[in-house]
Nucleic acid binder design. Structure first.
Lengths: 221, 221, 221, 221
DNA sequence: AATGAATGAGCTTTCATTCAT
DNA sequence: AATGAATGAAAGCTCATTCAT
């Protein structure tokens, strides 16, 4: 390595774009990947910069610090799911079907967004201190809760849902069944020598999860 | 944060300790805490050594590298749960009660061992490469699966369990509902402004989880 | 020995140097001395930095690693002799005189540059792997060979040189007689209790060496 | 790496021989190889011990320190050549033939003992301080010098040798032409893209070297 | 607003050596 | 005489960050 003697640490990038928003977005996308892959302490500012169209200096210019960048990445990641959650059209379905759809949506979203899941894992490793420190994340309440609350109210009224349960707690159960499959896939596959993420098992598990939630709500308490 | 917590209390003693096993155990215990708190890259060998009765040099003497230490910590952590799983006495209970007890055991174990859960999270962040690299972890199959399989077979025979499902997949659902509550408590509490870990909600959630599993198995498929 | 020699005199200045080229040259000069004195593994990056006007960090900034620095030192050392070899003006002398001058030049250059010789020795201890890894060193062919080839061709044409010999092999003999006197001076002096490097013997040996080479070429084969 | 968790630094060797002399010889042989390959600072006591049939502790027991071991290696290496030099039977040959044989012997010995040559190089890097520190090495004068002196005296008497030259200086020239070919083979081959050590060139070079020495002595001064 | 160059502090790891019997 | 276990000291290297314009 280092064949030709002298090699300073940072190499200038040829012709970089001048659009600040594009640059920030570029950084955020790369940073999300690196943080998701390696964690907050594991990710390297140098490595992020190297995969960017800008220089390391610009990361500090726009985000102030590695932690500032991580915060921005986290806010962006949560923004994604919230936006989608807010646009589910479940009002017109009967409560049981709506709940099933909601569970399936959660299941599918987690399956499709492993990077988001890894970021949430990492944030939990850090005791959610960045979530707590972010006004944006704390203020905007999760759309999922209000959607779920609406469905549950309709279900209790019609009598189809019999078990009284706090929507946040039901949301937790749905999330658990959706999240764990992805978050713990690596150890699960390694220890049980299966592939819980394979295509053929996914549909079956999706039904188990939805069934379990529906049964919990509809069975006589 | 961190700095002062590590500093005081226990200082490495230059005198020569006599008991290698005790020393190793001492290191492993401290290391487990540090890795669980800060992750593999976040944990500092210096900090681990400082809280030990030995010196940093001894860590390398016994465990070869930071990663070797992490491997040992991981094997020890999995060893703990496996030993307990192997000693559940559920054979004499009727299948439904046995399954309920199994779920409750899983729920309680996870609740009581947040450090283990953090280590598993961290290992998943690292794509389970250390689990895969450990003969001990891969060879010894999880006792939980065989216990669960036994219960399920009895339930299918007696006709009380109606839904055909792979024991590993049911195990995954039980684990998900037990694990997520602890692993994601920090973000969950921060985002929904609740305390999913509080004592008063725990009993209730424990029942929800067990009910959901029992219902899934006993309801007509 | 060593410790006190390194300590005093020049200390790294925390202030910011402005001239990268000067800084690099400064590092290279000090590093050449340390590597020549102590070898690649024996030299200490800390010791090099301490004698420099910069810090250790800058060595890694500019040269990436200890080995990268060593590579740069080696390339610089070979560059020195090559530049001088290329500027010998021997074309206008008759072949025998030219050859004699060439030998004397080689003899004198080695005598005057013990640091270069030590670096070459060290590189041979390392099986020349850094020379082989350097495009600069491998690409630029040694001027000495072409100069010598020119002289030999003229000598064969005029009939004054009678022994057919590959220029590279003759170059090796000249180098051997010039190099060994310096490279092995320490053991030679210690074992035979003489000083093969003393001023009074140098002139005499210079003549022996030149005579031997001339005789080899001019004597009837 | 470090698959099975705990691995202390040194592994006990099964059934080691108890013969002190054999053990010492075992250590010396391995150490010679390691020092020759890597230099004094480059060689690792651990690595030497690992290739031995004993433990690291025994090295210190018998040789006191790494440097003590190096000294012993050096003395052993010089002992080898001296013993052989002392047994050359050149007295009955005419002076010119004897000298030629002596040169050829030197040439061949160096060619056949690259490890010895590397040790001498390394010792020169260390300014021969270990040779100077060794009574054994300093006291025993080199047999080569007295043999050569004898030949030269006979040659001067018979008139076949014409050039007056100190035997030590002639010895140096012979050694230079024998030593350099081996010591600098790596860089020479790398830089000039030849193989000065190949079988087919060896014989030719051997003649050049002998011829050059003979010519120097026999030509009218 | 934008950036190339520089860096203090601290990290993991290694190494020859000694302790204690 | 012989040895298994332990270790202080320092080495090479990395990292997030700031200087200076």
């Amino acid at each position: 390595m280092g064949k030709s003697a002298v090699a300073a640490e940072e190499r200038a990038k040829p012709g970089r774009p001048r659009d600040p928003e594009r640059t920030k977005e570029d950084i955020l996308k790369v940073a999300a990947e690196e943080f998701a892959k390696l964690g907050l302490s594991g990710a390297r500012v140098d490595a992020i910069a190297a995969r960017t169209h800008t220089t390391k200096r610009m990361i500090y210019y726009y985000f102030e610090s590695k932690e500032g960048l991580y915060n921005a990445v986290l806010e962006r990641a949560y923004g994604g799911i919230r936006q989608i959650e807010a646009n589910m059209k479940l009002d017109e379905l009967d409560p049981e079907t709506a709940l099933r759809r909601l569970v399936e949506f959660s299941f599918d979203y987690h399956e499709a967004h492993p990077e988001f899941i890894r970021l949430v894992m990492i944030e939990n490793i850090h005791n959610a201190e960045h979530v707590r420190g972010s006004d944006i994340l704390r203020r905007t309440n999760s759309p999922a809760i209000s959607v779920l609350t609406g469905i549950m109210e309709r279900g209790y009224s019609s009598g189809v849902f019999k078990r009284p349960i706090d929507p946040v707690e039901l949301h937790m159960m749905i999330s658990a069944l959706s999240f764990y499959r992805v978050s713990n896939r690596a150890t699960f596959n390694a220890l049980y020598n299966v592939d819980i993420g394979s295509l053929k098992t996914r549909e079956r598990q999706r039904r188990y999860v939805a069934d379990a939630v529906i049964l919990l709500m509809t069975a006589p308490a």
